[in-house]
Amino acid sequence: MSVETVESSAGPTPRKGISILFGLTLVGLLLFLWLLLGFATNSFWTPNNISNLLRQGAMTAILAVGQTFVIITAGIDLSVGAVVGFTSVIVAWLLAAGVPLWLALIATLAIGVLIGAFHAFGIVRMGLPAFIITLATLTSLRGIGLLITNGSTISITNEAFTNFSRADFLGVPSLFWMVIVVAVPAYIFLHLSRFGRYLFAVGSNAEAARLSGVNVNRTTYLAYILSSTCAAFVGLLLASRIGIGNATQAEGWELQAIASSVIGGTSLFGAVGSVHGPLLGAFILATINNGANLLNVNSFWQRIITGLLIIVIVYFDQLRRRGER
């Protein structure tokens, strides 16, 4: 004990400073990648490619923000990729059945809410580990989606819907605007509202949070519902982008989302995370994929590079935390 007291009176750098520093490191990495690709290729800094990059990163970014809420509570949501595929089927199916667009959108998002509520129900009421319940819905949702479509895809003929993903606003792809539409409220929620503080408290020590009057169950519901709703939203964006509903789409996106979140400084042990971190993480991953395509690197390498990047970044993060102690 004595050692710790002495250290603390010496003044460990306040946490906020470090997190800003870490954020800047990520920004630096992103800029470095962009500069590098700008020199290495002729096509990187073309408006077309930048739009493409922003579109690519947008969907992972939104998933990663939702995922981060869950990881901060020391949970995990493995189902987000399956939810994306499943909700793309739902919206295509509803549109094919002649449901008005606005209603189809709301209904699809509502399905996202329900899936999240089911996850939280399994965790809170049935006492299942988050890993298990979300793994179960990962496989089941893809099954249900395939049953609905009988294994095929549903085409979307609603042009207002499919044009959305190709549209630009102020020269920026609409898909990227959607990141901002999600990120700004997410930032307010996580960093400025008391519910954000509760997420951190539950992730750090649920019992202490409970005894401090925090409704732990409600906070858990909130986290999983937000994650699934973000995934359903991405399902809409994906359906708009590819013009079909297909339950096998977005395979492995849950790992992309978790990787983005972790690269962005979220701790899988809970209680550490931000909104800007996963956004940067998602665009770093998108840049690597985009650059690898431009450089004609075998796409299999992209996976290997992503894996290595996760190890390096999380390792440096560990070193930083150790230094803090």
Partner: peptide
């Protein structure tokens, strides 16, 4: 503590 931002784990 030097600051309210220090982690509780660093305290005696």
């Amino acid at each position: 503590t030097p600051s309210r931002r220090v982690l509780a784990s660093a305290m005696s």
